[in-house]
């Protein structure tokens, strides 16, 4: 039943991806709307799946790497819906929806039998807070990367004197893409900082020390410094546009690489998940 929900969500996400991709080339607004609706339905299905799992296991279903990937996909889908509906950024649908589909599908296929409980030492109110902040920050960085990708594509076309045809009239301006990218980076950075702080408090409560230089901790600090540098270059040096967009995408690949690498190779005490 729960697995069925996740599979249904994946199928609906795949439909949304096709919708957004077709909408890019065919420029029919109704197709975009269908894509948004499907993304919304997919996120709804996945959410019901998580809630059922949480009720069954008594804690948040983020107890292993693939469950965390699935949860990340869901947070990203929800955040992208906010961006699309509230900030009229339908352009990112074509990048986000396939990512969410792939991540959810990989999680569903590769997931080992979910471990239903976590060690008592780690049972804490900090679990949902820390995980949600970490995943929220991650989702912000995913979206920042897709917005940057959109920026680079639009910028390239403008430079090449081949601006998108009238069909894509609803494409946001470069200025808006740049501004939204900045805001996403800022939000992501704030969430990541809070995730690190709550993680440290939780570690102190569970293991008796704030910081133990485990690979997940070290890497989260590296990621934190990387995004701090990115924001700094924008705020003080005034970097904008293409350079920031390119760096955002580079940062994102480092983020994903370290997340996957650390989780699968050297998870430490993190219980297989790290965001």
């Amino acid at each position: 039943m729960v697995t069925g929900l996740f599979i249904a969500a994946i199928v609906v996400y795949a439909g949304a991806s096709v919708g957004f991709l077709v909408a890019r080339s065919r420029a029919a607004e109704w197709i975009t709307r269908v894509g948004v609706d499907l993304l919304l339905i997919g996120a709804g299905l996945q959410m019901i799946g998580f809630v059922s799992r949480a009720i069954a296991s008594g804690n948040m279903p983020v107890t292993n790497f693939w469950q965390t990937v699935s949860f990340l996909a869901w947070v990203t889908a929800v955040a992208s819906l906010v961006l699309i509906l509230r900030f009229r950024m339908a352009i990112i649908g074509a990048f986000v929806a396939p990512l969410v589909t792939l991540a959810s599908a990989a999680a569903a296929i590769a997931a080992p039998r979910p471990r239903l409980s976590i060690p008592p030492s780690l049972r804490s109110a900090w679990l949902p807070v820390h995980v949600t902040l970490a995943c929220g920050g991650f989702a912000m960085f995913v979206l920042a990367a897709t917005v940057s990708l959109a920026y680079l594509i639009c910028e390239r076309r403008l430079k090449a004197k081949r601006p998108l045809e009238a069909s894509a009239d609803r494409t946001p301006s470069l200025e808006k893409l740049d501004r939204v990218n900045y805001r996403l980076l800022l939000w992501g950075f704030v969430m990541l900082s809070l995730a690190i702080v709550t993680g440290a408090i939780w570690a102190d409560a569970a293991w008796g020390h704030f910081w133990s230089w485990e690979p997940p901790e070290t890497w989260s600090l590296i990621i934190w410094m990387m995004y701090a540098a990115l924001l700094e270059s924008r705020l003080t040096a005034g970097w904008r546009g293409r350079r920031i967009a390119a760096l955002t995408i580079v940062g994102f690949t480092v983020l994903v690489g370290s997340f996957v690498g650390v989780s699968l190779i050297a998870p430490g005490k993190h219980g297989g998940s790290f965001g």
Binding site: C154, L158, P163, L164, T171, P172, S173, L174, E175
Partner: peptide, 9 residues
């Protein structure tokens, strides 16, 4: 004008 609004919000 169309190009300007591609660049500026």
């Amino acid at each position: 004008v169309a190009l300007a609004s591609r660049i500026f919000d």
